[in-house]
Amino acid sequence: MKEMVNVETTLRVPKWTLRKRKTNFSLSNLFLYTSTVVVLFIIACAVFPKWIAPFSPTYMNAEHILSKPSADHWFGTDYFGRDVFSLVIYGSQDSLIIGVASVLIGGIIGGSIGALAGYIGGFVDVILMRVIDILMTIPGILLALAIAAALGPSLFNIVLAVAASAIPGYARVMRGQMMSIKKRKFVDASRSIGTPNWRIFLWHILPNSWSPLLVLGTIGLGTSILIGSGLSFLGLGTIKEIPDWGALLSQGRGYLTVAWWISTFPGLAITLFVLSINIIGDKLRDSFDPKTR
């Protein structure tokens, strides 16, 4: 009788308690977690700058002009006596707006062009891809520079300029994904039972083709912020009391010999954010790729 009870109690033990938990910790995971923390912190700085910044970005203190980094001013002060740490936090707003908005606009327009070209094919594919090929012959920063110079300095114009430079990449990736998926067997099976083409496109092809676009958009976010900061550095960005990261770099380049911190810390913010986004994008690419799972 006791043996039967022991057998029953043994059978009732959950299987997960009998398994040994393995810790899958590696250096790549450490980079991923660190990058995620950095990105979340910068997003929090852009969304809640008043809660994080110790000073107002427009507050000027004549007694602390060009002060070195200290306990009171972590990143030092600029030539107006403004706290550089607070300027970097508030400057993240426009930089993230440029990056996110340009990725969304470029992804939607470029993805739509690539989807039409890849799914319809034929003459439509030839015309659309020749236009994309012409745009791809122009470097992205030069294309954005030309558009921003033609439209004038404003936040909306710089978003359009950066988004236009990203359209060819999204179009090419989406076209290749469409051409690959529309030849799959489940698409042929759906077409064989009389499913309309528009329903096949919306319910079968499109949902299975967005993952490479998501990876490209994640990595493109860092590139968009780099291009937007470069345009602001050249004086084609927004003209506001609170400059973005690129404008902060431009304002501090004349004081590198006497106040290196004015340009150094905005540059570090750009570098950390772009590097963290690229690490997250590489991890997403590996997770979506069945060959590396």
Rank of each mutant, 00 (worst) to 15 (best):
G176T: 07
A71L: 14
P196T: 05
I97P: 01
T238V: 15
I205A: 04
G235H: 06
Q177P: 13
F80G: 07
S165I: 14
G122T: 08
L214R: 00
F288A: 03
M129I: 09
G228N: 03
I65K: 04
D83N: 08
P54L: 10
V100W: 03
S229M: 04
Y255N: 06
M1W: 08
A171D: 02
S56P: 04
L160C: 10
I97Y: 04
G106Q: 06
A269N: 01
L236A: 02
I138L: 11
F265G: 08
F48S: 06
S263C: 05
R199M: 12
L213P: 01
S92W: 14
V84C: 05
N208Q: 15
M1K: 09
P168L: 09
T23Q: 10
R175K: 12
Y170S: 00
C45M: 15
S211E: 11
A247M: 11
V131S: 09
F156D: 07
D188F: 15
L236D: 01
Y79K: 09
I138W: 07
L155T: 12
K68S: 09
G230Y: 01
E241P: 10
A164R: 01
I279K: 00
L143Q: 02
E8D: 06
S276Q: 02
T36G: 11
S211C: 03
S95G: 03
L268A: 10
G254L: 14
K2S: 10
L221W: 00
F80H: 11
L248F: 06
S211P: 02
A163N: 02
F186H: 09
F201D: 02
T17Y: 15
L128M: 14
R175Q: 12
I127Y: 13
T218V: 04
L18M: 13
T271H: 00
F75C: 08
S28T: 04
T10R: 09
T218N: 00
I65M: 08
D78N: 13
I113P: 00
V7K: 11
H204W: 10
W260D: 04
V13M: 14
A53I: 13
R253F: 13
A166Q: 10
K22Y: 13
L32I: 05
T223W: 11
I193C: 06
W260T: 06
S26T: 10
G237P: 03
E63G: 11
A115H: 03
V88F: 08
I280P: 00
G194M: 13
R199I: 15
I108H: 01
L226C: 03
F80C: 09
S86W: 09
A164C: 12
T292E: 13
I120C: 01
G176A: 13
L27T: 07
D83C: 09
S92N: 04
F156P: 05
L18H: 04
A149H: 07
L151I: 15
S287H: 12
I52K: 05
G122D: 06
D244G: 10
F201H: 02
V38F: 13
L143F: 05
L145V: 10
A46Q: 06
S102Y: 08
I200H: 04
P168V: 07
N278S: 11
L151K: 05
P57H: 04
Q93E: 11
P212W: 06
W16Y: 14
V88H: 01
N208D: 09
L155S: 08
R199W: 10
